[in-house]
Simulated assay, not measured.
Amino acid sequence: MEYNYLGRSGLRVSKLCLGTMNFGVDTDQAEAFRIMDAALDAGIQFFDTADIYGWGENSGATETIIGNWLAQGNNRRERVVLATKVYEKLHKPLYGPNDEKGLSTYKIRRHLEDSLRRLQTDHVELYQMHHIDRRTTWEEIWGAFEGLVNQGKIDYIGSSNFAGWHMMKAQAAAQNRRFLGLVSEQHKYNLLNRLPELEVLPAAQDLGIGVIAWSPLAGGLLGGNALSADKQSRRSRESAEHLARHRDQLEAFDRLCSELGEKPANVALAWLLAHPAVTAPIIGPRTVEQLQDMLRVVEIKLDQATLSELDRIFPGPGGETPEAYAW
């Protein structure tokens, strides 16, 4: 395994981040344990989760599974860089009106306490805002996070689904408080969704914020099986529409991967790692076998000819703003 620094922080994390969104949903606890064991054995020590995973009334189930795994000992907790998130509604009656989406001091503190209890730990290395809160002030948000950092309950703060100007405002407010602020931004970025190249990625690079790419395989479309008949039969209408829209691109992508002798999923992930703003893509294996297939990604170095061909198949937005749409 290879490692990157997380943004401008001194923290090093594996170039592949283990996503756990399937745990407790499509992947039961026993298989989740095997996946986490295999990931750690392979050198993947960056684990990402969220308090909402498990979904609906089952929110928190994923953190509970991870906590049960950590509780087995063998220095699991000491070996893992653990990241979770706050923002979403968790369907907890005891929170009353404060269960709604947002980032109040109340919610940040209470939800972290609940996450730590489910994860069976006293701290997390990275605590992430799952979405921008357009109402709560940065004075309140940073005040809440500063207190938790000072208490040793979190080491670093990250964002997710922020625009470039959101990150800039957040960092300006943090700087005024002489506080480190954001070290990472978790963002939807893949070959089929290159809009972040307009502003989010340039802003992250300028600010020293490491980008953690979620949905790196575009919901499975870039995974290599999207064009097979058996997969199509199980697709939702929305997925089928996406497939129909991108069929020509996916067929060209499959041909390129065949020429390279690599699996499409691994090429899509290697393309992300070739971007200097990207710290790690989030992989979400449902089985140990899927995880093992992805371990080769860090060994794949795409040459300029291949990168140019990927640009031809999956055109970007035209570069950074304003050049992408102005003189």
Rank of each mutant, 00 (worst) to 15 (best):
Asp155Tyr: 02
Gly158Asp: 11
Gly158Lys: 08
Lys169Phe: 02
Ala170Trp: 01
Gln171Trp: 07
Ala174Gln: 07
Gln175Trp: 07
Asn176Lys: 13
Arg178His: 14
Gly181Phe: 09
Leu182His: 14
Glu185Lys: 07
Glu185Val: 12
Lys188Ala: 14
Lys188Ile: 12
Tyr189Gln: 08
Leu191Val: 02
Glu199Met: 05
Glu199Gln: 09
Val200Tyr: 09
Leu201Gly: 01
Ala203Ile: 03
Ala204Lys: 04
Gly208Val: 11
Gly210Asn: 04
Trp214Asn: 14
Pro216Val: 13
Leu217Gln: 04
Leu217Ser: 05
Leu222Cys: 00
Gly224Lys: 00
Ala226Leu: 02
Ala226Phe: 03
Leu227His: 02
Leu227Arg: 03
Ser228Ala: 11
Asp230Pro: 01
Gln232Tyr: 05
Ser233Lys: 15
Ser233Asn: 12
Glu238Trp: 14
Glu238Phe: 14
Ala244Gly: 00
Arg247Asn: 02
Arg247His: 12
Asp248Gln: 11
Gln249Ala: 09
Ala252Arg: 13
Leu256Met: 09
Cys257Trp: 04
Glu259Ile: 01
Leu260Tyr: 03
Ala268Leu: 07
Leu273Arg: 06
Leu273Thr: 04
Ala277Thr: 10
Ala277His: 07
Val278Lys: 06
Thr287Ile: 04
Val288Gln: 04
Glu289His: 14
Gln290Pro: 01
Gln290Asp: 02
Gln292Tyr: 09
Asp293Gln: 14
Asp293Met: 08
Met294Asn: 05
Leu295Ser: 08
Arg296Thr: 15
Val297Thr: 15
Glu299Asp: 15
